[in-house]
Design a protein around this nucleic acid. Structure first.
Length: 867
DNA sequence: ATCGTCTGGCC
DNA sequence: CTTGTGT
DNA sequence: ACACAAGGGCCAGACGAT
């Protein structure tokens, strides 16, 4: 069904075939890039391993991280040239976004309606993004080609294998790209990748999605390798790694402006289109089909789309809204057929094709096995190369194995060094050594390890039976990955790898003091929590009030404490492969605790025995009392190495197959730090997962909006209210989108229809809310809605006036649990009850200081700061 | 200067 | 952050 | 089991309008 709901490409508007030539991007810059890339890579290696001034002794854990790396990260190139494969991607930018850099004059917005564009001629820019300025006919555009249009077309049709071909059969070299040719070499048209997007959007089959992506990337890799990186970015809904702080800053506002000026539509018309389609790409498509462009601009190319995106992201300051709209308009105007759909979705960073980061990585890895770029030096006899790359005579099984290997390597590499600007160029040179270019290093965030959600404490004991494990407080703060380099460089990254160093100058100032003498560099995983002046942990909302940019230590109003729980690198050695027990000990051994500023998370160790179950249960309760979300439970030791000496499987009697499987699995759980993985060796037990511990409200649906994407045609989200018996009103508490099954959505259309009178023309007089849902409901049902916390809301109205004069109460993480057919709307949670729940929750807070920030408390552990 | 809207980012 | 869905 | 896509409350920062 959802598949059916994915909007199919409109058959009446065929995706524009690659029939036209693209008057070229100067290939020179890109050629230069790859040339210098080869040189610099060589140089970098020499520096890393040869230069006595920069090289460090390589470690038994691998030769990752070195002085050259670190220097480069903070833009202190060890040589006069910029290192290439590190986070510094300016060299890449310089080549791919040259139009923006060389042509700042593009700022002047062009808001002329399409009809007038013919009169505007003249551009210095030869790129196809510059559509409006090219009154050339198609024929003249193609004039430098040796073949006629028809000949090319025939050619293509004859030779073209569909991208859906099994990658093992697909021949990227034979893929016809004559039409991509320009005087400066081949250039991939944007339509090439949108064609792939169309196919991918039309299926849910993951294998097919990967195959199409894989084939698409191979064609680029073989024919236009410099287009590979931009294409990979376009596939991943991003244009730069998160920690580079590059944002498009395009939303509905700018999009509307641009589309209106292209299609001559009004904001109102667009809005109604959006209500109909629920997707800005589809809106743009619909708005554009009705427009006849007199002058067909030059086709878009992958690199131009990408470089324009980069330009948009680089705009800042006054007038940027119009400037962005102008650039968006140019691309929209130049797009043909299906292109505009994906172009616009790219603007809002939401491709909606059912493939994002991981799938693209997989496809990329496979692509690199089956083909290689002209820049890849395959050495015939090199066993490592042959371990990954396809060789003549490889049968299906061998290739499958190689692809699996490559996928593992690429994903592991990405998890430790998530920067496509480094990974893709490195991959273009071959899979075998590319890992060395993208090491785990200080200054580059690794993707954090995640915990599996666990709904019950008893589940913990089933999953971890026979193993030793640590239970840690899960504080309600912000996850932070803190890096200190040997030269004193500091970076603090968020859970999604944004650079938030600027937000925490106080934490940065702490790092030097934290380090014991033997600590020169590190990466730690921690939670930052707000504390008051007495060292009492504050709720998340306090932390979120903290300033984020240009923070001066003197002006900080919200103090924080860093609670560390893991160590991924120490003194330039990755510690990922150590057991948690060892990593934790390293943490204890190498850091001073600083009262109310730096501590290790509150924790106990346990295993599966009965006493432990009680202990863990108490610990869990205590964590909640102390204002935490719950606990994390983590396997401490490597398989078979449990400290309690107990064999993992010893007292398993009733050996059904299932038990056996469970036990085997349990006994193999890793205690390593696995970046980017949600492993069963880390279990997350939050209070609101556990029955009876969380807040649960009985609310009344009073309205809804029409859903988007997968949920088009359904009510989503739904506006819910509590009941105030005093004023006899329904006060909005939250919108809810989660917890509904597809079946439920369908039933809802029946339950709330105009026909049965449960859909109203407007809000009832007794509905108290600032929201304006698409559809108003007659209050007639009660639903149980679960949430994590009750919050004082700037917009919702629950119990307004009771806790705060102007603000009502709302719910954090609302989700639907079930209908309460046993209740009438007047029996819904009352405003008073809601207010009391809020008070109870806030009284819970404010009692507990951070315990192990106090050195005296922990003498039996023996890891307190000792000087 | 101040306020409102938009955007992206935490959870 | 949570949840349901499809492979 | 995994990947993806719906979208929640709430915030600071940035830009634009007044």
């Amino acid at each position: 069904m959802p598949k059916g709901q994915k909007r199919k490409p409109n058959p009446t508007a065929t995706p524009s075939p690659r029939k036209k030539s693209t008057p070229a991007t100067p290939q020179k810059g890109l050629e230069f890039f790859f040339e210098s890339q080869r040189k610099k890579q060589h140089k970098l290696e020499q520096e890393a391993f040869g230069d006595p001034q920069l090289a460090r002794p390589s470690s038994p854990l691998g030769n990752r991280g070195n002085a050259a790396d670190e220097a480069a990260l903070w833009e202190l190139p060890p040589t006069d040239e910029e290192p290439l494969f590190l986070t510094n991607n300016r060299s890449m930018l310089a080549s791919t976004s040259s139009p923006a850099k060389e042509q700042p004059s593009h700022d002047s917005p062009i808001t002329t309606p399409p009809e007038d564009t013919a009169s505007i001629v003249k551009s210095e820019e030869p790129y196809s993004t510059d559509i409006i300025n090219e009154p050339k006919t198609t024929a003249s555009t193609n004039s430098f080609l040796l073949q006629t249009k028809d000949e090319i077309k025939e050619d293509n049709e004859a030779l073209k294998q569909p991208l859906t071909t099994d990658p093992l059969e697909f021949d990227a070299h034979a893929y016809p790209v004559n039409s991509w040719m320009t005087p400066d070499g081949p250039v991939a048209p944007y339509s090439f990748i949108t064609e792939a997007f169309c196919i991918i959007a039309d299926t849910n089959a993951r294998i097919m999605i990967t195959n199409v992506l894989c084939n698409m990337l191979r064609v680029l890799m073989v024919h236009t390798p410099t287009d590979l990186l931009p294409a990979v970015w376009l596939c991943s809904n991003a244009i730069a790694p998160p920690y580079m702080g590059v944002e498009l800053g395009i939303g509905p506002l700018i999009l509307s402006k641009a589309i209106n000026s292209v299609a001559g539509t009004s904001g109102k018309a667009l809005k109604s289109l959006y209500e109909k389609y629920g997707d800005w790409g589809d809106v743009a498509y619909a708005a554009k089909v009705s427009v006849r462009t007199l002058i067909q601009p030059k086709p878009l190319t992958v690199r131009n789309v990408f470089s324009t995106l980069k330009s948009i992201a680089s705009l800042k300051g006054q007038g940027t809204v119009d400037a962005k709209a102008a650039l968006v308009k140019k691309l929209v105007l130049a797009s043909r057929g299906e292109e505009v759909r994906y172009l616009v979705r790219t603007f809002v960073s939401h491709l909606r094709i059912g493939a994002v980061r991981t799938t693209v990585l997989t496809a990329l890895a496979k692509a690199c096995v089956l083909d290689h770029s002209p820049f890849c030096s395959i050495e015939e006899d090199d066993p490592v190369t042959m371990h990954f790359h396809r060789q003549a005579g490889d049968d299906k099984a061998v290739l499958t194995e190689k692809m699996k290997r490559a996928e593992r390597v690429v994903r592991e590499c990405y998890a430790q060094h998530p920067n496509l600007d480094n990974i893709v160029p490195a991959l273009l040179q071959g899979i075998s050594q590319f890992k060395d270019h993208c090491p785990l290093s200080v200054g580059v965030p690794l993707r954090p390890m995640l915990g599996k959600i666990t709904r019950d404490l008893s589940e913990v004991f089933v999953k971890l039976e026979g193993r030793s494990f640590a239970c840690e407080y899960k504080y309600d703060g912000q996850r932070a990955q803190i890096h200190l380099g040997e030269q004193g460089h500091i970076k603090i990254f968020s859970r999604h790898l944004e650079d938030m160093t600027d937000k925490y100058p106080d934490v940065a100032a702490l790092l030097a003091k934290m380090c014991k003498e033997n600590t020169r560099s590190f990466i730690i995983d921690a939670e930052i929590v707000a504390i008051d002046d007495k060292g009492v942990i504050q709720p998340f909302s306090i932390l979120s009030n903290r300033a984020r940019k240009n923070v001066m230590i003197e002006n900080i109003t919200i103090s924080v404490c860093v609670l560390a729980f893991d160590l991924m690198l120490l003194n330039n050695e990755p510690t990922l492969q150590q057991s948690l027990r060892v990593r934790r000990q390293l943490l204890r051994d190498h850091f001073h605790l600083i009262e109310n500023k730096f501590a290790l998370v509150e924790a106990i160790d346990a295993s599966g025995s009965q006493e432990c179950q009680d202990e863990v249960s108490d610990f869990f309760k205590k964590s909640i009392k102390d204002g935490c979300e719950g606990i994390m439970v983590k396997v401490l030791d490597h398989p078979g190495m449990d400290n309690n000496g107990k064999a993992p499987m010893d007292d398993d009697k009733a050996n059904t197959d299932k038990v056996e499987t469970r036990a085997t699995k349990t006994s193999q759980l890793l205690s390593t730090y696995e970046p980017d993985k949600r492993m069963e060796s880390w279990l997350k037990v939050k209070k609101d997962y556990v029955e009876g511990v969380s807040d649960s409200l009985d609310l009344v649906p009073i309205g809804a909006w029409w859903g988007n994407g997968r949920k088009v045609g359904w009510y989503s989200p739904i506006l819910l209210a509590c009941y105030n018996p005093e004023s006899e009103t329904f006060e909005s508490v939250c919108k809810c989108i989660s917890g509904f099954s597809d079946k439920f959505y369908k039933e809802m259309l029946e339950v709330y229809s105009v026909d049965n009178g449960r859909v109203l023309n407007g809000p009832r007089h007794d509905y108290v809310t600032d929201h304006r849902p698409d559809v108003w409901f007659q209050a007639c049902e009660v639903w149980e809605i679960k949430g994590a916390d009750i919050t004082v809301s700037p917009i919702h109205k629950g119990a307004i006036g009771r806790i705060d004069e102007a603000r009502g109460l709302s719910l954090r993480f609302p989700r639907f649990v079930r209908k309460r057919d046993d209740k009438d709307v007047e029996d819904a949670t009352s405003s008073e009850i809601l207010a009391e729940m809020y008070e109870k929750q806030t009284n819970l807070h404010g009692s507990s200081a951070i315990e192990n920030g106090n050195a005296e408390n922990e003498e039996e552990e023996g890891w307190i700061a000792d000087d």
